[in-house]
């Protein structure tokens, strides 16, 4: 039996809409499930108190600080490296075989499972370089993990800048670097920033990498060489070892809210920068 084109159109529309709805539904389910179980246990005290009794009581201030510091180290390290590499790939190469190999390598890197980055960080930063389980080791390992994201989004943003902008700058006597820094990067900035903020979102929620490299210490870190527990790791430990499911959900709620805020601010920032251009 064959359907008439109008009927087929209708089915296609309903089918595709249904799939999309299903996907959004999964997202909503996760968020609502976590909120339902966790929101009730969040209080000002929970946010501002140190961890007590392995997480059974007290708050999670140390994990919030730990997460913030580790992500900060990761982004501060990964941004200059990633953006520089993207500028090289987009502006200084002529699309030869070597560039292709480099780009392929970067794409492969983004497909490496995070647990491998954890192992890599453990061997290189924790053991070989002697940083121990620390915020520094965790941040550096996370930096390696988010590098491919930053590079590909930044390269994409740079490539979307019209060639004519480069020609204009060059014809006014700008060197290649002046052209990149004065005419190309300002235009590509929203795209580059979006990649960085999305990387922050990924780094905030990462568990495997930091468990291997930053450890699970529950006290407030005092230096970058102290071990620290991130919110994600805290959630993992609380839930895995059955210490306190209520506090686990409360931590998860804060974690999810943080990630949502980070992502939302990425979109808002991009929107504002794009509008300022016109």
């Amino acid at each position: 039996m064959r359907l008439g084109p109008r009927i087929a159109e209708l089915f296609a529309k309903i089918f595709l809409f249904g799939i999309t709805l299903f996907i959004v539904g999964i997202l909503l389910f996760i968020i609502l499930f976590i909120l339902k179980n966790g929101a009730a246990h969040i209080s000002w005290k929970f946010i501002t108190m140190p961890i007590e009794d392995m997480g059974r009581s007290g708050g999670i201030l140390a994990t919030i600080v730990g997460t913030g510091l580790i992500v900060l180290v990761a982004i501060v390290v990964a941004t200059p490296l990633g953006v520089s590499s993207a500028i090289y790939l987009a502006e200084y190469t002529k699309g030869g075989r070597i560039t292709e190999v480099i780009r392929f390598g970067i794409n492969c890197l983004s497909a490496v499972p995070s647990i491998i980055f954890g192992l890599f960080g453990f061997i290189l930063f924790v053991e070989t370089l002697g940083f121990g389980w620390s915020i520094l080791s965790g941040g550096l390992s996370l930096a390696a993990m988010v590098l491919p994201t930053i590079i590909s989004t930044a390269e994409e943003a740079l490539r979307s800048v019209p060639i004519s902008y480069r020609e204009v700058a060059r014809s006014l006597g700008a060197t290649r670097w002046q052209t990149v820094s004065k005419a190309v990067i300002p235009y590509a900035l929203p795209g580059i920033l979006t990649g960085i903020i999305l990387s922050i979102g990924r780094a905030v929620g990462e568990t495997a990498v930091v468990i291997f490299t930053a450890g699970t210490a529950t006290q407030m870190p005092r230096s970058l060489l102290d071990s620290a527990r991130t919110m994600a790791v805290h959630f993992y430990v609380l839930a895995r070892e059955g210490i306190s499911l209520d506090n686990a959900y409360a931590t998860a709620t804060l974690l999810i809210c943080t990630i949502l805020i980070v992502n939302a601010s990425a979109y808002m920032l991009m929107h504002r920068l794009m509008r300022g251009r016109r």
Partner: peptide
Amino acid sequence: RRRVGMVYALPIPLPMSIRDNVLLGIRL
């Protein structure tokens, strides 16, 4: 390129203010 300027077929203002556009080359 500074001594021999070029004006292209299509006007290509960069996405910045009139002031910044005019001063782009000289500020370099």
